[in-house]
């Protein structure tokens, strides 16, 4: 299993009130799976993604990434997991506004410790894949929402992470840009056997996903296989 959670619970403190975001989530995701997660707002989808992305620790239970428990890791180890294993695409593109598109992609490589000496060589292939090659010198503010999200995807996949997590990646996009993003995920999963977990309400993405997990009130209420995707079995 590339991702596994066992009785995963997460409680936040809001002032004096404890808010249970996750209430015993059990989940097993194999390598190469494309999993869609859906559920109403506040059901714990994003919290689950943050834990699976090594950005937050569980309050109780276990979350395992490639067999390693996130709860047992210190900050340095969590940072390493994020750097080496995870690519994260947020609903908002979350690009660095002061950097160009090229540098936004390069920064991920730089942090990963894999920056090359030719920026054109470094970024052009990925940029072509996402049809943003003519935008490399632009700042994020000069791009459309769809283009920004494609840059965010380029940044997330540039280091070949073993797990790509996307939290409502098409949530702010029009249908054309959603289709480009959908194509990207589809190709990554089909040809690279990229493990993808995405939170989405986009019916096209859900339709393509091999598996759909439905959440409500911090729990998984349905987990259904839709169609075959690449897995390690």
């Amino acid at each position: 299993m590339i991702l596994e959670t066992i009785d995963l619970r997460k409680t936040y403190k809001l002032g004096k009130v404890d808010v249970e975001a996750l209430r015993g989530v059990n989940l097993r995701i194999r390598e190469g799976e494309l999993v869609a997660i859906k559920g109403p707002s506040g059901c714990g989808k994003s919290t689950l993604m943050h834990i699976l992305g090594a950005m937050a620790r569980p309050t109780y239970g276990k979350a395992l990434i490639s067999g390693q428990s996130i709860g047992d890791m210190n900050d340095r180890q969590l940072t390493q997991v994020r750097r080496r294993n995870i690519g994260f695409v947020f609903q908002k593109s979350n690009l660095l506004p002061t950097l160009t598109v090229r540098d936004n992609i390069e920064i991920a490589r730089h942090i990963h410790g894999a920056a090359g000496d030719s920026k054109d060589q470094d970024s052009s292939g990925i940029a072509q894949l996402l049809m943003i090659q003519d935008k490399m010198g632009h700042k994020p503010s000069e791009l459309s929402g769809g283009e920004q999200q494609r840059v965010a995807i380029a940044r997330a996949v540039v280091n070949r992470p073993s797990i790509l997590l996307a939290d409502e990646p098409t949530g702010n996009l029009d249908s054309r840009n959603s289709e480009i993003v959908l194509d990207m995920f589809r190709e990554l999963n089909r040809k690279l056997r990229q493990t993808i977990v995405l939170v989405t309400h986009n019916p096209d993405l859900i339709a393509y996903a091999g598996r759909l997990i439905e959440m409500r009130d911090g729990m998984i209420v349905a987990d259904s296989v839709c169609r075959q995707t690449f897995t390690d079995e």
């Binding site: 940072t79 994020r82 995870i86 660095l96 920064i107 991920a108 942090i111 940044r155």
Partner: peptide
């Protein structure tokens, strides 16, 4: 921005 860098795996 710092949160973005940290999410990308930037160390403290």
């Amino acid at each position: 921005e710092i949160g973005i860098l940290r999410s990308l795996g930037a160390s403290k």
